[in-house]
């Protein structure tokens, strides 16, 4: 994220600690809902600051979140989001690419570590084997992470029913990934460990570059 967004995010994180437990819980639900919305991270943090200050002011007057915001937090969030310009298609696409770069870098790092370990044990060092299952499960994990993020955001005010749906979704993805890794063992390529190590580093560098450009 840009420097200004990063600064405001840190300020919000810091100031949020001063709220009482109930207001913190309400604000967390609101922020989770905002995170899954179609507004830029900069605007998310601006709205978060405004709502945090409304809650802090209310707290100082002895009012709870419902008295300040109203009883329906989701309706409040929707009315706020309706007044904020959404991200353009280009911004959304770049945001998606950025998130995928980070996710892929993390997965490649984990795979590099486990691959290097098994290669050393099997005597294949310094070459790593990438299977079809590795690629398929990585794609599924990335898709699953995006789906989970959306479900968590939309279910921010959903209570236990949303939690159960989330658990079922998580379990389903975990099972599918385990099956793909187990059944698709055909080797696709063998790469030198140094070349493999460059992949997550390059992905991370591309992520950092893009993240600084995006608000």
């Amino acid at each position: 994220m840009s420097k200004r967004t990063d600064r405001l995010l840190k300020e919000n994180n810091e100031q949020e600690k001063r709220l009482n437990a109930e207001n913190r819980r309400v604000l967390t639900d609101i922020v989770v809902y905002l995170r899954a919305s179609n507004i830029s991270p900069w605007r998310q943090e601006l709205v978060r600051r405004d709502i945090r200050q409304m809650l802090a002011d209310g707290e100082a007057r002895g009012e709870d979140a419902a008295a300040v915001i109203g009883n329906d937090y989701k309706a409040f969030c929707d009315s706020v989001l309706a007044e904020i310009p959404p991200m353009s298609r280009g911004e959304r696409l770049l945001g998606l690419v950025r998130d995928l770069l980070l996710g892929t870098a993390a997965l490649a790092g984990v795979r590099l570590f486990s691959g290097a370990l098994s290669s050393a044990l099997d005597g294949g060092w310094p070459r790593l084997t990438v299977t079809a299952g590795d690629l398929a499960s990585a794609a599924l994990i990335l898709a699953g992470a995006s789906a989970l993020f959306a479900v968590i955001g939309r279910g921010a005010f959903g209570g236990r029913a949303a939690d159960r749906r989330l658990f079922a979704l998580f379990f389903g993805f975990w099972l599918a990934c385990a099956c793909l890794s187990f059944f698709l063992r055909r080797p696709l390529l063998h790469v030198h460990v140094l070349a493999a190590a460059a992949v997550p580093l390059m992905l991370l560098a591309a992520y950092r570059l893009l993240d600084r450009k995006l608000d």
Binding site: A67, V68, I69, F76, S79, V80, A82, E83
Partner: peptide
């Protein structure tokens, strides 16, 4: 509720009818 007023303030601000500044208040928080 302040929560009813806030989205309308965002709309007015977005339309350029009002402008906002953050300041320390006499009573305490910004």
């Amino acid at each position: 509720a302040e929560g009813t007023v806030y989205p309308l303030l965002l709309r007015l601000e977005r339309g350029g009818l009002i402008e906002a500044t953050y300041r320390d208040s006499a009573a305490g928080p910004r």
